[in-house]
Amino acid sequence: MSCLKLNNLACGYPQHGTKNSELLVVNQLNLTLNDGEIACLLGPSGCGKTTVLRAIAGFHGLNAGEIWLSDHKLADVNSAVPPERRRIGMVFQDYALFPHLSVKDNVTFGLHKLSKSEQNSICHEMLSLVKLEHLGDRFPHELSGGQQQRVALARALAAKPSLLLLDEPFSNLDVDLRRTLALEVRNILKQQNITAIMVTHDQEEAFAFADVIGVMNDGKLHQWDTPYNLYHQPNSRFVASFIGQGVFLSGRINKQHIETELGHVACDVSSSVSENIVSENTETHVDVLVRPDDIIHDQNSTVTGEVCGKIFAGTSTLYTLKLPSGTELLANFPSHLDYSLGQEIPLSANFQHLISYAKETA
């Protein structure tokens, strides 16, 4: 059953120096989020993802479209349910805890209509959930960043929201803690069957946290899909280049294979080439997406790449390899294969999911 629906959503901001005119930062956005699903809006800075979150929360008006939550309309162009009546919780980037209140008082802040015993019961449940039951009497400044974020999560969940919104909640934490806390928060939300949307620009964080991810750019939703499909089956050139690491390699379709600098790649032309009309009687130039995991060390290959960069990552090493044409590729090799800068490596491509697009022209 769907929990959240956004229909043809558009949001804008007034343009300076122009009367009665707004610049749209979100335009014709549609998505559906099911009960219990955890989603993420991912995209570069300024793409409109935070504006979408603010519109759902009720902090930003609509220029067009509708917002529905569990079959109740929250907003359209002419009307809007106030934020405090939407049953939507929010976790902010800067935690937004009250510094003069204890952890317990922060968690129960929005529960003033309940009796004291009910407040204490919910507070104990929430602090146990985020594993902070022993810190209830402390104040925010006495906690670490990760602990403060857990308190913010406990406060948001205490009101039993129908939907939880998280605005880059881990961006103020160090890298290792961000990944760990993202997984912990995901487990808590799944345990409580909470539907949630997070905004982030960190792909690894999004992949670890979300069941479904929406890739945004220039105010539009390019693809709403699982992390696996975004990586292996991107539906546009932007998604293909934005998700993961990769380089576009020039190729030419010749019957049932694509000729590239790495050799012939057998393919089903109809399924491997997007945004292009392929004629049986003409050769079609394409750009083939080559990801680091597509490149293999192949002693039998006559194609070599010169090592011009390497990043050791423990279990693997990410190499930058320059082909004879000057094109640079990325390749992930097991860390026991150790090559020096300037060394030539024999290589070939093994595409499990071939992704190619019509050749871009200047």
Rank of each mutant, 00 (worst) to 15 (best):
P83Q: 05
F59M: 10
E84C: 12
G61Y: 07
A75L: 09
V77W: 02
N63M: 12
I88C: 04
K104D: 14
D71W: 09
R87Q: 15
D76V: 08
R85D: 13
G61F: 05
N78E: 14
P83W: 03
T108W: 05
V77P: 00
G89F: 01
F98Y: 15
L101A: 02
G110N: 14
G65S: 05
G61T: 14
V52K: 00
N106M: 08
A96N: 06
N106E: 09
D94L: 02
I67N: 07
V91G: 00
L62N: 05
A96I: 00
D105S: 09
A75S: 15
L74I: 13
N63K: 12
S45C: 05
N63H: 09
G48W: 01
K73W: 05
A96F: 02
K73C: 14
D76R: 05
F98E: 07
Y95Q: 10
P99C: 09
T51A: 06
A64V: 07
D94V: 02
S79R: 14
D71P: 04
A80F: 08
H72T: 15
H112S: 14
L97E: 04
F98D: 06
L101R: 10
D105H: 13
T51Y: 03
G61Q: 13
R86N: 01
S102N: 09
C47S: 15
L53E: 08
I88T: 11
R87T: 11
P83M: 07
L69P: 10
V91E: 04
G61A: 13
S102C: 09
S70F: 06
K113I: 06
E84I: 13
R87D: 15
P82K: 11
F59R: 08
E84L: 12
I67Y: 03
V81L: 15
L74F: 12
P82L: 03
F98P: 06
A80H: 09
G110I: 12
K73A: 11
F92S: 05
V77D: 05
K113H: 14
V52A: 07
W68S: 10
H112W: 11
L69E: 07
L74C: 12
S45P: 03
R86G: 01
S45E: 03
V91F: 07
R87N: 15
K113N: 12
P99D: 06
A64S: 15
L53F: 04
A96T: 03
G110E: 11
K104C: 10
E66H: 07
V103T: 09
I56R: 06
I88M: 06
D76L: 01
L74Y: 11
L97T: 13
V81T: 14
K73Y: 06
E66N: 11
M90H: 03
Q93K: 04
D105V: 01
A96P: 01
L97Y: 00
C47W: 07
L53S: 11
S70T: 14
S70Q: 15
A64K: 14
A80V: 13
R87C: 12
R85S: 12
D105E: 15
